[in-house]
Amino acid sequence: MSNVFDERRCVLGEGPLWHPERQQLFWFDILSKKMMTRENGSAGSWEFDEYVSAAGWVSKSEMVIASASQIFLFNLDTGAKTKLCDLEADDPVTRSNDGRADPKGGFWIGTMGINAEQGKGSIYRFYKGELRRLYSGITISNAICFSPDGQTACFADTATQSIQQVTLDAEGWPNGTPTLFADFSNEDLNPDGAVIDTEGYLWNAQWGANRVARYAPNGDFVDEISFTARQVSCPAFGGADLGTLFATTAAEGLDGNFEGKTYFAQTSAVGQPENRVIL
């Protein structure tokens, strides 16, 4: 059973992150160019001059944020921005989308066409100051998440209705060809953001299906959490015991009052703490 965590309606809620040192949830409304938070019952937000979509934490006061044209360091206390690198800055058609830090301290970030133009997106890894393209020809990058042992990464192109997995080397770089983790095409499900718990089970938000679904490490469906909002976009584990599953949603194209809000549900699982990004 899910409950409302934050009543504000996001046009396109995305990228929830539970900051382990602040014990605080951050998330984005991509199309409103905002990062949002709620702390001790008080709502807060930061506005930017372009689309922002995903973050990783560096310290108690600093976060890495991906935007339409760059990856930058953001100070939560002062609001100061420091550019780290360009991110498809020369392509006005694309923007950042899903992203997450890996266990080695690398920040994975996917891009996509602003209007989901076919094959315009890529997935990158920013690691110790270097941005490297990992995969190209992706339409809607999503479901970037990592196994607890740090040996496997998962990601999706939502347009393919499947999630891929790939093994990682000792530095966290992919060292093989991606293989299929789960195919949702027979059920006509659209994989959006995902996170993996401490037992290696993958929790996937499924756009248009009112749910976050849980899959075993072998890709088998296990369980689901239902939401009143239709377009559930990304989950994140948080709370003091990392047993609370937060989920962003999107009101884009829908009228219901419950669409676009940020939700939470108590689970019997334990999430992995979000990894620190190593600059």
Results as ranks from 00 to 15, higher is better:
Glu130Leu: 11
Phe26Cys: 04
Ser122Gly: 04
Glu7Trp: 05
Leu131Lys: 01
Leu17His: 04
Ala250Met: 10
Gln118Ile: 13
Ala209Met: 07
Asn40Thr: 09
Ser59Thr: 15
Gln24Ile: 03
Phe5Asp: 06
Thr152Phe: 02
Asp255Met: 05
Trp207Pro: 04
Arg9Ser: 02
Arg8Tyr: 12
Phe26Leu: 02
Arg38Cys: 05
Ile163Met: 14
Asp220Met: 12
Thr267His: 03
Ala205Phe: 03
Lys81Glu: 15
Glu21Ser: 13
Asn97Val: 11
Cys145Arg: 01
Gly113Lys: 07
Ser162Val: 10
Ala229Met: 04
Thr248Trp: 09
Asp102Leu: 03
Ile196Asn: 01
Asn115Met: 14
Ile71Asn: 08
Tyr263Phe: 15
Glu259Val: 09
Ala89Tyr: 04
Ser96Leu: 01
Asp169Glu: 08
Lys104Asn: 11
Ser53Arg: 06
Ala213Leu: 01
Leu84Phe: 06
Asn115Thr: 14
Ile71His: 09
Gly200Asp: 07
Trp207Val: 01
Asn275Cys: 13
Leu254Phe: 03
Cys145Ile: 01
Ser53Trp: 03
Asp241Phe: 08
Ile123Pro: 05
Gly15Ala: 00
Val64Ala: 15
Arg8Thr: 12
Phe74Ala: 10
Asn3Met: 03
Trp207Thr: 02
Ala194His: 10
Val52Pro: 09
Gly119His: 10
Arg133Phe: 09
Thr244Tyr: 02
Ser32Val: 07
Thr37Gly: 06
Asn115Phe: 09
Thr94His: 01
Gln165Leu: 11
Thr267Phe: 02
Gln24Ala: 04
Phe74Met: 05
Lys104Leu: 07
Gly41Thr: 04
Glu224Gly: 01
Ser32Leu: 12
Phe264Leu: 08
Ala80Trp: 03
Asp90Ala: 14
Ser226Gly: 08
Trp57Gly: 10
Phe155Ser: 13
Gln70Met: 07
Asp157Glu: 11
Gly253Tyr: 06
Cys10Lys: 07
Gly200Ile: 10
Ala101Gln: 06
Glu39Tyr: 15
Tyr51Ala: 13
Phe26Tyr: 15
Thr244His: 06
Leu254Ser: 06
Ile196Met: 15
Arg125Gln: 13
Trp108Ile: 04
Trp57Thr: 00
Gly119Leu: 02
Met36Thr: 09
Val195Ser: 00
Arg211Thr: 01
Ser45Ala: 01
Gly150Asn: 08
Tyr135Leu: 15
Pro273His: 07
Lys120Trp: 02
Asp192Gln: 05
Gly106Pro: 06
Asn218Arg: 09
Asp77Phe: 00
Arg8Glu: 11
Asn210His: 15
Ser147Gln: 13
Val277Pro: 03
Glu14Thr: 05
Ser61Met: 00
